[in-house]
Amino acid sequence: MNAIQDLLTLMFFPGGLFVLALGMSYEWIDRKLMARVQNRVGPRWFQPYADIAKLLVKEEVIPADSNRLLFIALPILALAGALTAALYVPLAGFDPLYSFKGDLIVTLYLLSLLTVCTGLAGANTTDRFSLVGATRTLTQLFSYEAPFLLAMLGPAVAARSWQINEIIADADGQWLLIVQPVGFVVALIGLLGKLEIAPFNAPEAETEIVAGALTEYSGRGLALFRLGRHVELVVGLTMVAAFYMGGVNGLPLFILKTLLLLLILVGIQSLVARLRIDQTVGLWWRWGVLLVLAQWLALVIWEGVQA
């Protein structure tokens, strides 16, 4: 009986399908807001669903000289990673489904899985756009990942715990972004890099390398990658909101805070041009890392003083 209930939870509420639906709604809000900023009408609410449905029924073309197994498995792995990560974060204000000591680290790595899979998927084909895209994806991964990780660990250090639950409980409604503003900014911008949205969309710059690493993907594979991206958007927003904006207990608070973050993301996204990949790397290592490290230092000293 219990097992069935667990299964149901995993598949429907608040796991699985619920996360997917949430992801697509956020994707829609993102696109709609973007359109409104640009004075366009924008898509209707069901557009992300329609996109995915269309992709799922379309033929999937597997390029002749790529590894079939990898080609098929990578999108599944990517989506699975993102979905698994969703289990450990307080989505929609519910307690995380699973929680154990150190789940923060696991979640962060699971979130990176999507990017890694995208990069591998690009490297798996012989298409030249994909290869350039894969190089860029992985380069970008190495540039934002460390600062993002450090930024996410800031609250953890403050809470002296690696468990998402405890960190949130420790923060207990305090807005950490006031005491750790750098961490907040870096985390938010790291999210932009993670999701490959402007100005960090060089890996899929359509005017240069078509669709980047995913150029050869069509049909099901592309749909899964995109779903993974949508889920990651929600998970990322949730984590930043939970860590830096005083937790997300309850649905209204969750929606309010994540939407606020999304609005900021849309603002950044629509007001900048795309950075070149070398500029992205430069930005992160020259500013992102240094700033986060400086904040870390301050944190550690503060903790030392207190102890």
Binding site: P199, L271, A273
Partner: peptide, 16 residues
């Protein structure tokens, strides 16, 4: 040109 630079907002505004 703005679109090539990935600056879609400028693109939309100027075409509007």
């Amino acid at each position: 040109a703005a679109h090539e630079a990935g600056f879609d907002t400028l693109f939309m505004y100027s075409w509007r």
